[in-house]
Each structure stands twice: as C-alpha cells, then as structure tokens.
Nucleic acid binder design. Structure first.
Lengths: 151, 151
DNA sequence: ATTGACCTTCCAGTATCTGGAACCCTTATC
DNA sequence: GATAAGGGTTCCAGATACTGGAAGGTCAAT
C-alpha cells in the first residue's frame, strides 16, 4: 500500500512517516518503479507500535530502543520494564511539577478580584522576589522540559 | 551592573538575557563605551518577573502580554485574570493527560513480570491495536504539546 | 606584559514534527 | 488524447525556548 493508506491505518501522518524514515527510526520503505513508497501490514504494525509508544510519552530515542526490544526475541522483559518504570517516574515528576504550578496559579488568581480596577495580585506575585507559595525545586524546571521526558 | 550580575540577581542566565533581547521580549540594554550591556535594578526586576512567569509555565508570548499589563497602570485586573485562568485550564488538561499516560503505563508494567523471560505485556500492549486501558482523547496529544501550554 | 574572568557576536544544534513550494504519477472522465 | 483530481516526491523553512561553542575584545590585578 502507499504511504497515505499506511498513514490512515497506523494513525501516523504521511509527513511523520517520512520524517521517521529520514531520522532512521524506521527502515527506508521499498519503492515502486515510479518512486512511491510501499508498505506492508507489518510496516503498519510497526508504525502503530510507534504511535502508541509516542502517545504514552516515550521519546523517539526511547521508542527506538523499544522497537529493538520488540524485535529481539531474546530480550528480557526486565529490560523493557526498566525503561517503562523510569519513564513512569519521569511522568510522575512532571505531574508533581505541574500541580505545584497550578496551585500557585490558583492561589494568585483567587486573590485577584478580576474587575476593572488596576491592582492585581497576580502581577504582584510575579513581580515579588520569592515564591508566592511553596518551596520551588532546586533548579526551576520549565514546561519545555516536557519535550523530553526521560529518566 | 554587567550582564553577569544581572543574571545572578534575576536568576535568568546571561545567555538567556541576550536571547530575550534578541527576540524583543525585553528592550535592548544600554551599553558602556566598550560595548558591554548595563542593567539597572529595574531591569533586574523585569527579568525576575519573566523568570517567575516562565517557571509557572507561561509561554514567552504570554509573558510578553503579562509584561505589557504589568507596565500598564491602566490595565484591568480582569485581563490578567483571564490570561491566568486560561493557563490554569491548560495546565489542568496536561495534568489529566499525564495521569492517563501514567495509569496506562502502570497497568502495563504491573502485568510485566520483569525477569529474564522474553514475553512482555508492555511490548504486547504497545503492539496491540487498541488502547490498553481507557478511551484516548480525540486526537492523541503527545508530550511535546507541552512546549506551548496555551489556552 | 600577561593572566583570568568577563564580555561581545554569530552560527549551529536540541526535539519533533508541520507547512509549503515545485514538481511527478495514476486514474478517471470527456 | 487532453485534462483534472488526488495521490505521491524532494527540499527548505519554521515553530519553541533556549544552550553550546568558537573567535575575539575588555578589564582589573599582578
């Protein structure tokens, strides 16, 4: 089947499939004489696997390792479990961090009357020197740390 | 003071301060005759404000708006509150998504014996066609959606 | 004069795609 | 056979928010 069909069945967009090929996450697809990529059922399964793993927040690097383990009949399930467990821990840390952020934000917004008067505890809180709420982590982690949720 | 001191006091790295200047988030700093950037107490306050807002997960675009509101004495606190409230909602959505991911991951790892045998429910779950756990959101959101936590 | 700690600019890379331009292939219809 | 729609192809750029590093200028102290 062509890339469009593979995309539909695997739920990975054609654009992204080509991207995965370009970075070596998947092997280059075979081609028709005219240059179209062709995909088998097995290829679609692989793409689905990738889709599921990505939707669970594994990085592309992690997915690459998981694919190796998946294809390696001799792997130990302990290896997979270790990867997954580390990932869960990372996700948990992110959840906690987001909760702290939300609590602080809620605290600030609750104290803001939110009308047309200019004084605003939210801005005062942001301007203030210390944390408005609770101890911050050693190194403040920004949201974009979520780009890579590693161990 | 020079950029290094400003960085130390504001907790925004010198590199990042220059970056903020380059994208127009902050006004270009004044310079000494030899070209060094110089910063006032007020500049440091602004940088601290940015640091706090970023650590609460506001995007740089959001921070830009917050800075405008902060400097505008005629602003309505309702405007700030609206921005903050939308942000809280976005953070909440991300927390829920991460929780769903963690639940699925926990389910898979709990069913994995994690020894040296090759069969592994985690990989089977990733390979399986459907969600292993609960209904997924309409469009699966990847972790890197966290790069921008907007409304 | 030399050292070392700062500062400068500029280019590139990180992670993960996504959009768009310019152009080729297939199939159906007129 | 011409044409149009709806595929496919490649390559470049952009988004996000920085961070690292190279090559070189400045400042204060020894």
């Amino acid at each position: 089947m062509n890339i469009g069909q593979a995309a539909k069945h695997s739920k990975v967009s054609a654009k992204t499939i080509r991207y995965y090929e370009s970075i070596g996450l998947i092997a280059p697809a075979s081609r028709t004489e005219s240059g179209y990529r062709t995909y088998s059922e097995k290829d679609v399964q692989t793409l689905s696997f990738i889709h599921h793993a990505r939707s669970l927040g594994f990085s592309v690097k992690d997915v690459s390792m998981l694919l190796d383990l998946w294809r390696n009949q001799k792997r130990a399930s302990a290896d997979v479990k270790a990867l997954a467990t580390a990932h869960i821990a990372a996700v948990d840390r992110k959840i906690e961090e987001l909760k702290r952020m939300r609590d602080t934000l809620l605290d600030l917004t609750n104290r803001c009357h939110g009308d047309d008067r200019p004084d605003c505890p939210i801005l005062e809180g942001l301007a203030g020197s210390g944390s408005t709420h609770k101890a911050a982590p050693e190194k403040t982690q920004y949201l974009n740390d979520f780009e890579t949720v590693g161990p």
